[in-house]
């Protein structure tokens, strides 16, 4: 969906228009953001400053003809650091100096800065401390309330039940079933995931 692996089948329809997505850059151009599961491996660039991490997917927003405006970049980063309450003395600190939860917020901030229509969050709270976790949850709620479509991938049942309007249960790479918020219970989800009849 994010253009990393070629699709086997199906099509992507965004706001009624079919979209061709062949690379992450295409996906970003279409307003899709993806916060990956393993933030150390695929999320934050530990050696770069926080500001550079936040602007990484929206460099054209803080630059003109490829020339980065440092002040504008810092201002953009500071805006998201404040909004997501990232605990750091400065946006020029290396991202590697942050705690796991704050690194995850930086990864999230990068995508919010692209102003996406659809945001895919892959296990957004895995390995994140309890405080940051509820903060990330409330940020997701705010974003959804402001009209952003959020796709959360999670293997944590309470999180799925607490956050979702619609639950798609996947089993070995295919969709095993769909439940509305009202129908969704721990039992039904597990039944679908394990392949029992509902």
């Amino acid at each position: 969906m994010f253009g990393l692996t070629p699709p086997d089948a199906g099509e992507i329809v965004l706001s009624g228009e079919p979209a061709q997505i062949g690379s992450p850059a295409d996906a970003i151009a279409h307003g899709i953001g993806y916060v990956p599961e393993d933030r150390r491996q695929h999320g934050v660039v530990l050696e770069l400053p926080i500001a550079a991490n936040i602007s990484l997917s929206s460099l054209d927003r803080v630059s003109r003809h490829g020339l980065i405006d440092g002040a504008e970049e810092d201002a953009l980063a500071q805006q998201y650091v404040d909004r997501l309450r990232v605990k750091t003395p400065s946006v020029s600190a290396a991202a590697g100096t942050l705690s796991g939860g704050n690194q995850q917020k930086v990864a999230l901030a990068r995508w919010l800065a692209t102003d996406p229509k659809v945001l895919i969050l892959d296990e957004p709270t895995q390995g994140v401390d309890v405080g940051s976790k509820s903060e990330i949850h409330s940020i997701m709620m705010d974003l959804a309330a402001s009209g952003m479509a959020i796709v959360m991938i999670s293997s944590e049942l309470p999180e799925v039940l607490g956050m979702s309007d619609r639950v798609m249960v996947m089993k070995s790479g295919t969709i095993a079933g769909e439940l509305s918020r009202a129908e969704a219970t721990q039992e039904k989800i597990l039944n679908l995931a394990l392949g029992h009849a509902v």
Binding site: F2, L4, P24, A25, A27, I28, Y34, P36, Q41, H42, G43, V44, V45, L46, E47, L48, A52, L56, S57, L59, I68, R110
Partner: peptide, 17 residues
Amino acid sequence: RAVYATGSNASAALLAG
């Protein structure tokens, strides 16, 4: 910036577009 990001974490840079 892209050169540094590529060398520091290629998969994160790719995912960042």
